[in-house]
Design a protein around this nucleic acid. Structure first.
Length: 861
RNA sequence: GCCCGAGUGGCGGAAUGGUAGACGCAGGGGAUUCAAAAUCCCCCGCCGCAAGGCGUGCCGGUUCGAGUCCGGCCUCGGGUACCA
């Protein structure tokens, strides 16, 4: 026997079958109205330079679905591209003096070759990068269409400004209120920026969530909370003395029923009245400057210590004009929500209560608990709005009522008496898309002194990014690129200037799925292709995208449908969503001379020690990240074990929606198993008739051995159920068991070969190269990638007898093997005769006897 | 801070409200081998000699029966609108 031929050698078989698939163009998708389509998409990657294990897991899952659906007869679209604009390229440009485009395309080339080694069933003919002018040009066309439909507008908004680097910072570039490079305290600066009118769609985006039945509930809940519809009252507090031409402070509240518990009126540091007061009050100005120095992120604002300052102004209570309330500026009031001003009711709001205690402001209860009437001390009384409470001196005459009823009564009263209006408010804000950066899609407008903001003409698209830029100075290189900026006005022809802001990269990823249906089209989409392929039938990606990316994409699909680029049926673009967990790894750490942590790559650590013998501290698993050096490079794993092993391991053990820990031992076990399957096929192939010999055409078709046939039928059912239910880990477990059963079976080799062929088919979505090799060795005809999915023989799935566990008082004491359809009374007789039951009864009769047919028996004594 | 998840043996995990721990790893024992690697077989939640008891992050509840449902916590993770 030739030893080279008797060992599982993934390097050889993987490249062999990849070439076969390419040559046969198995994965190229062509629209065909006569066939049912299936569009499977994994969130496309950012081209950071290298694939990581999270990618392998994500794309292995998508590949399982794609290959499985193809085997089930669908015309499958499974494309791939690159989310290629973004900050890291500009950082690389600054740090390494390399053009962001060159850096990005190098990374893409590198990652693509890594992708190809994984043997994914991708249609590479549809590949594009969002930084390709052909792509972003169409994105600019979409922007102009949105502009025409009134879906985009400009308004002032605040950004993080680094006064030393003279540049706008992303939230992640702000650390403890300071710029990450300069260390300077950040300031909030107001700029005029472009916004998508996503908030016009708030109601629709919220109610349509109900129809997304194949989305995880958690994602729908998160989106619903994010959109945040709330019913409340908008009304004004009159100032006792008008200030700076302002005589009234408008507030929005979801708890107007607690108005009699009002303690003070609070203003955002960014409220117009605050700003007016600041000009003449240096203390207030200093306080507001401090409030603004924490940056713009909601997290930083909310986590900051709750602080405030009395403005000295007073307002009248709308229900009792002789009741005056102080007006405070407080750092926890957001200008972006409601009116940027609130009234505080400390008795029924924890944050207000903490604030009131700190500044010694009054705390007045407006209702008390029915079950436990206690005065509020340091814990606000906040029962569910559906719970009945006792009202104290309620202005609408309520006594015992729920919060919900009191809110509606208050709104009705306010509207009747004309001092307030019931409104439905959404938390969702319009989507600011302007970015003061180079490496993004240019916003295709021109600023003309005479004509104002003028859209670029569509025939002039794409507005290309200039290549000759430098990153040696802070700020956006487009701002100082006069040759690029200075253009004639598209409308009047006079000298004008291009917009130098580029688009948020979330725009790029909000429609790429639509572009994949016709990546070369001269318009954003080709409607016949989009009509055929949309929607995405299965979308797969990280749960970290649960809100922003998915919500923006839902908005974009609606907007594209309005502009005619997508059918109305694609307003919800993703029929089913699956969110997979992260890949984690232990972290290995030592300390340097100053006690600072030093991290080490897993590859540098053997048995808890470095090469020089130093032992490392093992920190529990965390998401793989470069800075913690707990990354496992897929390239190394593919070189060592093959792509099939990497894929198999990433699909085994952990449920796909949960995090998975990478361990070397697990990878080795996966490899061992694949080698075992290959070996079995190799051995069996030698005992089968060789091609050309008599009987060779009688390649294995069906398993005739009764026991093995039953096992095979069950394996088909169980593995299929696992794939259908996105429980790939249980499919893998069943495949392990099926393999062991074939190995143990005493059935004739032809039967075992037939069973092994089925195993290959079932493994094909996960380990496609190995499966092809086994299939071919066992005499399978054609490419396995083109074979239909095996069908389980239903007759073999039915059990004739069933084992019933017998519980006494809920604890298992015995069991009983009975015919599947034995009547209840017969089972009861057998149960009562059981020695363990007899013993428990001790001569008495059971209080209760529960028989759940086919499942369990419980005797209550 | 707020929103959303997750927590089961030494480890990853399985389990329509119905025998907790499938399958895999690690560990132990054995077979094969001159020896090893590789491979194959068996055992394997904890305490206990045993009978038996205890066990799904913690406390309580519903139920004949709870890992699963409900209430209250704890810890870890994701998001928090300019990271993608």
């Amino acid at each position: 026997m030739n030893t080279a031929m008797s060992r599982y050698d993934p390097a050889t078989i993987e490249s062999k079958w990849q070439q076969e698939w390419d040559a046969a163009e198995v994965f190229q998708a062509t629209s065909d109205p006569k066939r049912p389509k299936y569009y499977v998409l994994e969130m496309f990657p950012y081209p950071s330079g290298n694939l990581h294990m999270g990618h392998v897991r994500n794309y292995a899952m998508g590949d399982v679905v794609a290959r499985y659906k193809a085997a089930c007869g669908f015309n499958v679209l499974h494309p791939m591209g690159w989310d290629a604009f973004g900050l890291p390229a500009e950082n690389a440009a600054m740090e390494r003096k390399i053009h962001p485009g060159a850096w990005t395309y190098d990374n893409i080339a590198n990652m693509k070759s890594q992708f190809r080694s994984l043997g994914l069933s991708l249609d590479w003919s549809r590949e594009f990068a969002t930084c390709d002018p052909e792509y972003y040009g169409q994105q600019q066309a979409l922007f102009l269409d949105f502009l025409e439909k009134g879906l985009v507008y400009r308004k002032a908004a605040v950004v993080n400004w680094d006064p030393v680097d003279m540049t706008v910072l992303a939230n992640e570039q702000v650390e403890d209120g300071r710029g990450w490079r300069s260390g300077a305290l950040v300031e909030r600066r107001e700029l005029t920026q472009w916004f998508f009118r996503i908030s016009d769609f708030s109601d629709d985006l919220l109610t349509a969530l109900d129809g997304l039945e194949n989305w995880p509930d958690k994602v729908r809940t998160m989106q619903a909370n994010w959109i945040g519809r709330s019913r409340g009252l908008r009304f004004g507090f009159d100032l006792t003395t008008p200030s700076h031409g302002i005589d009234k402070v408008d507030v929005f509240t979801t708890r107007p029923d607690t108005l009699m518990g009002a303690s003070f009126v609070g203003l955002s540091p960014d409220h117009p009245l605050t700003k007016a007061l600041e000009a003449e009050n240096p203390d207030l100005a200093a306080f507001c400057a401090e409030c603004r120095s924490v940056g713009t992120s909601e997290e930083a604002l909310e986590k900051a210590e709750k602080r405030g300052m009395d403005t000295g102004l007073r307002v009248r209570h709308p229900l009792k004009p002789d009741w005056e309330l102080p007006v405070w500026v407080a750092n926890f009031i957001l200008m972006d929500y409601g009116t940027g001003a609130v009234f505080a009711c400390p008795a029924h709001d924890q944050r207000d209560l903490d604030f009131a205690r700190k500044y010694d402001l009054p705390v007045t209860e407006t209702f008390e608990s029915l079950s436990d009437p206690q005065p509020v001390t340091d814990k606000a009384l906040i029962p569910p709005k559906s719970e009945k409470v006792r009202w104290i001196n309620h202005f609408a005459g309520l006594d015992i009522a729920t919060g919900d009823a009191a809110i509606e009564a208050t709104i009705a009263l306010a509207e009747k008496d004309g001092w307030g209006t019931g409104v439905t408010q959404f938390r969702l804000r319009d989507w600011g898309l302007s970015r003061q950066r180079y490496w993004g899609c240019p916003i295709p407008v021109v600023h003309c002194d005479a004509c104002g903001v003028v859209p670029e003409k569509k025939e002039n698209l794409p507005v290309r990014l200039p290549d000759d830029v430098s990153f040696d100075k802070p700020g956006n290189p487009l701002d100082r690129h006069d040759a690029w900026r200075n253009v004639p006005c598209p409308s009047c022809g006079a000298p004008a200037k291009r917009e130098t802001d580029t688009m948020d990269t979330f725009v790029d990823s909000s429609w790429y799925f639509a572009r994949f249906t016709s990546p070369g089209a001269a318009t954003p989409t080709d409607r016949s292709e989009a009509d055929y392929w949309m929607n995405v039938d299965q979308y797969i990606g990280g749960v970290e995208h649960a809100i922003l990316h998915l919500l923006y994409s839902r908005f974009f699909s609606r907007a594209m449908a309005i502009c005619g680029h997508l059918p109305d049926t694609a307003a919800e673009p993703f029929n089913a969503l699956f969110t997979q967990g992260m890949v984690t790894h232990e972290i290995y750490q030592t300390r340097d001379g100053q006690g600072r942590p030093v991290y080490h790559l897993p590859a540098e650590v053997t048995d808890g020690k470095l090469e020089n013998g130093d032992s490392v501290e093992v920190i529990p698993s965390a998401k793989m990240s470069k800075s913690k050096k707990n990354v496992v490079d897929p390239v190394g794993i593919v070189d060592r074990f093959g792509a099939d092993t990497a894929r198999w391991f990433m699909l085994s053990d952990s449920p796909p929606e949960r995090d998975v820990e990478w361990t070397d031992a697990g990878a080795e076990a996966a490899h061992k198993h694949l080698a075992r399957v290959w070996r079995m096929a190799n051995e069996l192939s030698e005992s089968l008739p060789k091609a050309g010999e008599s009987g060779a055409e009688a390649a294995p078709k069906a398993v005739s051995d009764a026991a093995l046939a039953r096992i095979t039928a069950r394996a088909i059912r169980d593995v299929t159920d696992g794939i259908d239910g996105f429980a790939f880990n249980t499919s893998v477990a069943k495949l392990y068991a099926f393999t062991a059963a074939i190995a143990k079976s005493k059935a004739p080799d032809t039967d075992r070969a037939a069973a092994l062929s089925v195993l290959a088919q079932l493994m094909a979505p996960m380990t496609p190269h190995l499966a092809e090799d086994v299939w071919a060795k066992l005499g399978g005809t054609g490419l396995l990638a083109n074979q239909p999915w095996p069908k389980a023989d239903q007759a073999l799935l039915v059990d004739q007898t069933v084992t019933l566990p017998i519980q006494v008082n809920g604890k298992r004491r015995s069991q009983l093997s009975v015919a599947k359809d034995m009547p209840k009374d017969e089972i009861e007789k057998l149960v009562l005769a059981d020695p363990a039951v007899q013993k428990a009864l001790a001569g008495g009769t059971p209080k209760k006897l529960i028989v759940v047919p086919g499942r369990i028996v419980n005797v209550v004594v």
